[in-house]
Each structure stands twice: as C-alpha cells, then as structure tokens.
Design a protein around this nucleic acid. Structure first.
Lengths: 192, 192
DNA sequence: TTCCGGATTAGCACTTGGTACTAATAGCAG
DNA sequence: CTGCTATTAGTACCAAGTGCTAATCCGGAA
C-alpha cells in the first residue's frame, strides 16, 4: 500500500475510533510503530492521550450546553409584548453541518419559534402550525437577527399569527409564519 | 478537613471535572499527592487517563448514533435511503416548558427535520421550505416516533418532498412537509 | 507516661504510550 | 554507483500514573 493511501486511511480510522494506540495501528497496517508515528507527525494527528482529551472535552461542553440553552434559543434584545420582538443568535461551529458548514435548519427554526412564543403575552402559548422558508444558507460566525411581529388583524379567538423574519447582515435568510394558540381568550390589543 | 469529607468532595469534584491530575488535586486540598492516591484507591476512583477514556467513549457512543445519519436529533432506528426512515426521541424535562410541561415545538421540528435530512441519499441536503402542524401537546416522558417518507413523484430536479409524521402511542402529534434541496441531480429512485 | 493505630507523607521501581532524535537499511531511479 | 525516499531500529526522556515499603505525626487508651 502506498504511503499516501495509508495516511489517508489512518486519518479516517482515527476519526472513527480515536482509541487506537500506535501499536494497534502498526499491526493493522502491518508496518512498524515508527512508521505510524511518522505518519501521525506528517498529518498532524495527535497522540492517543491528546485525542481522548479533546473527545472528552467535547462531551463535557455539550452536556453543559444542552442544559444551559433552556427557555429561549437566542438572546432576546428587545420586546414589546403582543407587538414585536427581536432576538440575536450567534451561529457557531456547533450549529452547522460538518460537511458543508451550513447551519442546521432546526436552529433557525428554534430561534424563530422561541421568539414567537415569547412575544405572545400569554402564560401558555403554543405553536399550532407553521410555514417556514430557508432562503439563504447561514454559516458559522454569522449573527442571525430574528424579528417577530404579531399580526393584529389575524385569525379567530385564541389564535394569533406571528410573522418572523431572520436576517444576517440585513439579508433575509429565513422567514416563518407561526400560528399560535393562546389560552386566555382576549380581545385584540388588550393588554393582560 | 476530615478525611471522609475530603474524599466526598474529591468524588464530586472529579465528576464535574474529570481532567484534574493527582498533583492538581493535591494542591487543591493542600495534601500530598500520595494522600490523593490513597483517597482514590479507597473510593475506587480511576486515574486521569481512565477517566478520560470513559468520558470519551460516552461521547463516541452518542456520536455513533448520529454518525450514521450525520447529526440527528433523536435516534434513527430504521432507514431505507431515499425511501423512508424512522427515529425515536424520548422527551425529558429538559425539552418542555416549565410552566405547563408541554414540549417546545422546536424539538419536534428538530427531530423531523433531522430525519428528513438523513433520509435523503445525498451529501448535501438542505431544507428549503416546510409546513408543519402541531396537533397534540407532547409531555415529558413521551416517546415520539417520527416516520419520514420520501415522495417519489415530487417536485422538479434537485428538489424532493419528504413527509414526516410523528406519533406518541400511535396518536399523531405532529406532521410536516419538508421541501428538500439536493446537490446531486439524480433521477427518482436511482441509487447513488 | 508509654504504646498503639489510623492518617499522612516519602521514596523507589515499574508501566503505558507516547516525543524527539539519531542512525541504519532497503529499494528504486537516474 | 550515487542519491533519495521510505521504513525500521534504538536510545533517552516525559507524564501520570500503580504498587509497595518505610517513615512520621498525632490523638486516645492502658
């Protein structure tokens, strides 16, 4: 097997299974341990212990994250109940597909949906139906600004329509219509 | 500080942060490294390297599930590429509104959306547009089963329609239409 | 007071899975 | 034959330990 091919496979193998020692790897490829070390050196692949450290720290971070991200997805920076609201969501590496670096749709949806729930001046607001459009891909590092607007003229009792538009650098990347259900039956515009 | 108390704290500390070496721990408790080792021995706490190994393997196990389908929310239990797929998502306290115990919409959406992406036999599948319905509230403890079906007769080139229906105890709680974009332009039914 | 025992500390040999470096060898191309 | 690359071998060293023995400290009972 040519060297290049072996190194490529080595990288792939270790990505799938970071627990392999150089010795195990040398047996797998039937080369010497030193060759494996040279290969790792050339490809910048760290040693077993370092690999485990990074994998383990990834876990710890994610566990913290899934706990933290509780009520609202994205920071609400401005809100006028029953009228409009604005939230900001910074996209990081954690939110994108590894393969193409594009943010997963459900994160944009989560931001918009959370904002729609929050802007409703109601104890128990639920999303009933929604139509959404992903207009442009969002990348890691982008700052997504979602604007929600409550449509006054909308729908019957206990139903409210909230429109959300999300932008990155003033370019619209996402729009959504959220049909919300509220428990308290209340006339339009009346504050709680 | 009494020995018992120190050992209790040691256990707690290492659970939160498994990355600490005996030396760092000895400084933290202002005792010798040997004392820390005796403490670990008595409490059956493994050494740093073993701790990282178990933490890392925990990650990998979780990632194996999402490896198949590239970052899926919910476990995919069955899948026939380009045809249909099924995933399970167990709702916990973390997924519901504290106030009313009802699952946040974006979790159901995330499960369905991830499944729609996974079922597409494509390297780069993106959601373009989606219409969803939340039919019944989902509570903590519920097991949500999402079924995705690729509609063969659907849409133009590079576009595919995926229908997803999610049920709890055979009752439909959520339905969604996902208009997916694929990069590889390919005839219907043709396998990669 | 003296002696005992648990707790603590110290020291040494050894282990794993490496790094860093040097040197030797094999195989092929010009 | 020379030069070059790839591979292999061997040495010293490191981190973070285990395992074991031995010394020390300190408080309470005889």
């Amino acid at each position: 097997m040519p060297k290049k091919e072996r190194q490529r496979l080595l990288g792939k193998l270790l990505e799938e299974n970071p627990f392999l020692t150089d010795e195990e790897l040398s047996e797998h490829f039937t080369v010497s341990v030193q060759t494996i070390r040279l290969d790792r050196l050339e490809r910048g692949i760290p040693e077993l212990r370092e690999r485990l450290k990074t994998v383990a720290s990834r876990t710890m971070n994610e566990e913290v994250k899934s706990l933290h991200s509780d009520e609202v997805f994205g920071d609400i920076v401005d809100m006028e109940l029953d009228k409009r609201a604005l939230s900001i969501f910074d996209v990081t590496e954690d939110h994108v597909f590894q393969r193409n670096g594009i943010a997963r749709g459900h994160h944009l949806f989560a931001q918009a949906n959370s904002l729609a729930v929050a802007v409703m001046n109601d104890d128990l607001a639920l999303t009933v139906k929604s139509t959404i459009n992903f207009l442009k891909p969002v990348k890691a590092g982008d700052r997504v600004v979602a604007r929600a607007e409550v449509k006054k003229e909308s729908l019957g009792e206990k139903r409210t329509l909230v429109m959300v538009a999300s932008t990155v650098n003033d370019e619209t990347v996402f729009t959504g219509e959220f049909h919300m259900y509220r428990t308290t039956d209340r006339k339009q515009g009346e504050l709680k």
